[in-house]
């Protein structure tokens, strides 16, 4: 399985090192793994002892607020998009980055199309598993399509308003 890894502002297609562990499957001992929110909550104490990178998967109705104390222990949070219309996790990703200071990977999974990954990136996602049968290699150009942004988000890109006033006049204090 390949995915798009957007790291250091440089998107690339890579092989996926992670395993999404099914509800009743055993945890791998040799590679990083994600668990469902239910399983994580049930087993978090015992899992804390493991010397293994772990992640949690959140379905679109699940709230990141349920795992806030665990965030420092998590290397990845996978946010699932069940269909093209459910945009809740755009907000989840922004909260993770901008409010809860999460520095790990945020991965988009499920029905992810190339036309969504640039707004996802702006919200703080940095890994993208495209929907089945979608061409991952050609999708990385999606990040180059729109170069101007009007609103602040989780990315560092200056907004149009910031650019307009950067050239002229003194910069804002702070």
């Amino acid at each position: 399985m390949t995915l798009i890894d957007y790291r250091n502002e440089n998107p690339m297609v890579t092989d996926d090192a992670w395993t999404h562990v099914a509800e009743d499957a055993a945890l791998p001992t040799d590679r990083p793994a994600t668990l469902s929110l239910q399983r994580w909550k049930a087993a978090r104490e015992e899992l804390y002892g493991r010397n293994l990178s772990l992640g949690v998967r959140l379905e679109s109705h699940e709230r990141v607020e349920e795992i806030l104390p665990d965030l420092p222990r998590l290397a990845l949070i996978a946010l699932d998009f069940p269909n093209l219309n459910d945009g809740r996790h755009f907000t989840t990703a922004r909260l993770l980055r901008e409010r809860y200071g999460f520095h790990g990977k945020i991965r988009a999974t499920g029905q992810v199309l190339r036309d969504q990954i640039d707004p996802m990136r702006r919200c703080g996602f940095n890994e993208f598993e495209l929907a089945e049968n979608k061409d991952t290699a050609s999708a990385i150009t999606a990040f180059d399509e729109i170069s101007v942004v009007y609103q602040p988000a989780a990315d560092a890109q200056p907004t149009a308003a910031q650019l307009r006033h950067r050239q002229s006049g003194p910069t804002m204090a702070g």
């Binding site: 219309n85 459910d86 945009g87 707004p119 996802m120 702006r122 942004v149 609103q151 988000a153």
Partner: peptide, 13 residues
């Protein structure tokens, strides 16, 4: 208009 145009968080309300 500018704030709402291609707002990344509110593209799939």
């Amino acid at each position: 208009r500018q704030w709402s145009t291609l707002h990344p968080e509110f593209s799939f309300l």
